[in-house]
Structures are given as C-alpha cells and as structure tokens.
C-alpha cells in the first residue's frame, strides 16, 4: 500500500445556510485512482475545494502529504482541473503554450521569470495529453475536449504527485470521453500520478479506477471499488435516491 497523501478526518463544512458535508473521513494513498460519485449538490466540489485549500473546513482535520493543511505550502504537488464552464472565459486571447506555462507560476516563485526549462516542461505536459501540435493555437479556438486536455497539461506541467479533476468530461463529446479516460489511465499507471476524479461517467471509468467514494453530504461508502458490490439496495438508495440501479459491475451506477 502506498503512503497516505491525503487524509481527511471527521470533516464537516457548511455554507451560510447549507450543510454541504458532514463527518467525512477519507484517505487517498499514493497511486490510487479514486472516483468520487454522488448526485448533484452532494458536496463533491465542496470536498475538492477543501482539499485544495480554497475553503476551510468548519470542523475536522485535513492532512496533505502528512502535513496539516494549514501549514501546507507546496501547492505545486497537487494539480487541479476545475469544472471548465465555471472559471474559463473562452474569448481569452492566449495560446495553449501561454496557458500551460501558467501552471508553473507558483513553482517559479514571485518576482521571477519562467526558467529556461519551462519550454521543455510545457512540451512534456502537452505530449502527455496529446496536444503538442496545438501549442501555438488560441485556447478559445479549440473544442471542449481539447480545452480540457490543455487544462490537464497546465495541471501536469509542475509535475504534481496528485491530480484532482472536477467533472472534467462535461461538455466533451461521447467518443472523446473514452480516449480522455485512456489518457488519465496512462497518467495513473505510467507516471504513477495519484488521481481523484469527480464524475458522472461511473460506467466508463469503472474498469480504470481503484477506489470509490460515494458521497451525499455524508460518506455512504469509501473503499476499493470491488467492495462496493457489498452495498445493499437500501444503502444504495439512501445514497443516491430512487433512480439508482445496482448493476453487477461495481461502480456502474446511474
């Protein structure tokens, strides 16, 4: 078993009125490929935002790489790909290269220019996502799936050990989703990058992931994906509501 990279203990979070998370305990180890599943509004994005230090838990503790998150400064060890629609202005006049290089800003440090090696880092990251031929193109001209690859390259360029993705395939057309997950699979298996993925494509990722977390304000299940089969119909329904169907394949929940 790999070393624990992310440890959440009894974490709760509330927005002004809404209780978004309650008593969440979660461990992610080196090399894991964790899928976080749950209906809309179940607190998936909130959980990721806590891990990224964008919001502070109301109660509970979070440790990243063994260090309390309040004292954790090596943010470049964690890459982040957000739900694209929220944060990106598609008319932005920047090239793929410029966007990806931005992922090195923190690592390079304040008051410094990008080092010479930045060019190679960008090339390596673009190759990893299969976008090296689009280096000089404007991001706004790319398709949704291509843009999402660029954002992954931006997250990869600082050589993170953990990559956190929030519904990365929203807006990506069906046939490209498959190759998108192939790419994530390679990152996980070949480059040993630990992956945390929020997704609704449970069926498509079920072959590739190692762990599952079933979230709906509280944690309904967390563990190896094949252990998920042991969840009873009642447990599944408590987690996902009425529309849930249990399929023989673990993780295949719609």
């Amino acid at each position: 078993m790999g070393a624990p990279l992310i440890e959440m203990e009894h974490v709760s979070f509330r927005y002004e009125q809404t209780k978004a998370l309650e008593d969440i305990t979660l461990t992610v180890r080196k090399g894991d490929f964790l899928a976080i599943l749950g209906p809309n509004g179940s607190g998936k994005s909130t959980l990721l935002k806590i891990l990224l230090g964008l919001i502070k838990p109301t109660t509970g503790t979070v440790r990243l790489f063994g260090k309390d998150i309040r004292h954790f400064r090596e943010r470049e060890r964690i890459g982040y790909v957000s739900q694209k629609a929220n944060s990106f202005n598609s008319g932005f006049p920047a090239t793929v290269e410029e966007v990806v290089k931005g992922g090195l800003a923190k690592k390079t440090g304040l008051f410094r220019r990008f080092p010479e090696s930045a060019e190679e880092d960008v090339t390596r990251a673009l190759k990893a996502v299969g976008m090296e031929t689009s280096r000089k193109r404007l991001v706004g001209e790319l398709s949704g799936g291509q843009q999402q690859r660029v954002f992954i390259a931006r997250a990869l360029v600082s050589r993170p050990e953990v990559l956190i993705l929030d519904e990365p395939t929203v807006g990506v057309d069906k046939q490209n989703v498959q190759s998108f997950y192939d790419m994530l699979d390679r990152l996980n298996k070949e480059q040993e990058i630990t992956l945390i993925l929020v997704t609704h494509d449970a069926e498509m990722v079920s072959d590739r992931i190692s762990h599952v977390a079933c979230l709906n304000r509280t944690m309904h299940f967390h563990g190896f994906k094949n252990e998920m089969e042991r969840m009873s119909a009642e447990q599944l329904e408590a987690w996902y509501g009425h529309s849930v169907r249990k399929v023989h394949h673990a993780g295949a929940v719609r």
Partner: peptide, 23 residues
C-alpha cells in the same frame, strides 16, 4: 514586470490561481 505571470494566471482563471496557492 514583477507580477506578469501571476497577473496572467489570475486573469485567465481566478480559481486555478487560488488553488495553485498564488497570493
């Protein structure tokens, strides 16, 4: 000159800038 790269990242994607730990 001093903050070009931070300004760029912040302008392009504020959430990413925050998540990367930029001030």
């Amino acid at each position: 000159l001093l903050f070009y790269k931070e300004l760029f990242v912040l302008s392009f994607d504020e959430e990413f800038a925050k998540a990367s730990g930029l001030p």
